[in-house]
């Protein structure tokens, strides 16, 4: 195993530019799962970002919250302002693994790992976050909902690193997060949902689901229903939109039927009464 230990983001980007197959490492909570059994992966080359203090920052500006790439779930849980301005970040952080994972796992790592079950990603997407990708040639910003291109695939080039996550400060009059796992902690999401409504005129809905498609996904058809004010009287009224938005599968954690049905019920019960069209 080779590990590169950069002293700065710039140095890390230099490494990336030279070696396209580097695997960036932050909290390592995904990489080291069953590590002794995965001997073949011991032969790869890793880039340890964990000591880059410049990435361990939480910055509030007039327009946004910026999480440096090393921001952990626990960091956000401790932030005095996060709970009032971005309550869904708190709710999702509390449901990641347990404290032993929350203390090491990073939001950026969660994005980079690309799991469709990622717990941190839906709420970030529902808050319209964007990802800062930094390389030797500079930094570009990509909206999180455009970040993924397929199962564990993204627009990140091999010479780029996620350096920060930026979340615009906006007014929301509705925000909800659901994680359905097989137990209350230490669970991998079977179906998850993050929803926000911006209180601008006209109101903007964002509905994000995880564990029901190849990637964490904005649900455009459901959003359209909500924007159109279509009347909803029962969970099944979401069925067509759900069928158009997501493609859940049967796997060892749940079934496609369960995921679809529960998604409809969560949507319905969360939204009932929130808008006059849904009752």
């Amino acid at each position: 195993m080779n590990v590169l230990l950069p002293n700065s983001l710039a140095e890390a980007c230099d490494f990336c530019a030279k070696q396209p197959d580097l695997i960036p490492l932050a909290g390592a909570t995904d990489l080291l799962v069953h590590w002794p059994l995965r001997q073949a992966e011991h032969d790869k080359t890793y880039l340890d970002l964990s000591k880059l203090q410049e990435l361990r920052t939480i910055t509030w500006s007039a327009n946004s919250l910026t999480l440096g790439a090393l921001t952990t779930y626990w960091d956000v849980l401790q932030d005095p302002r996060a709970k009032s301005d971005f309550p869904l970040l708190i709710e999702s952080a509390r449901q990641v693994g347990a404290i032993q994972i929350q203390s090491r796992g990073t939001w950026a790592g969660n994005i980079a790992n690309g799991s469709p079950a990622a717990d941190g990603v839906p709420v970030l997407m529902a808050y319209d976050a964007s990802v800062a990708l930094t390389s030797k040639s500079g930094t570009r910003s990509v909206p999180l909902h455009e970040y993924y291109t397929g199962y564990r695939k993204s627009v990140r080039r091999s010479d780029e690193l996620i350096s920060a996550i930026s979340i615009p400060l906006r007014r929301y009059d509705f925000a909800v997060f659901h994680k359905v796992g097989a137990r209350r902690a230490q669970a991998i999401t079977k179906i998850g949902l993050a929803m926000t409504r911006e209180s601008a005129k006209p109101a903007t809905w964002r509905v994000v689901a995880n564990s029901v498609a190849a990637t964490v996904k904005r649900c455009a058809a459901v959003e359209n229903l909500l924007h159109a004010g279509a009347p909803i009287r029962k969970p099944e009224d979401f069925a067509a939109a759900i069928a158009s938005d997501v493609t859940p599968i049967d796997d060892i954690r749940s079934t496609a039927d369960y995921r679809r049905t529960v998604m409809a019920r969560l949507l319905y019960h969360s939204l009932k009464g929130v808008s006059p069209a849904i009752s």
Binding site: V33, H34, A98, A182, R183, R184, A185, Q186, A187, I188, I252, R253
Partner: peptide, 16 residues
């Protein structure tokens, strides 16, 4: 056994 891990074989935690 397909789910032969503590991630996928679900025993209760203190919070359950």
């Amino acid at each position: 056994m397909l789910n032969n891990t503590l991630t996928n074989y679900i025993i209760p935690t203190s919070d359950d």
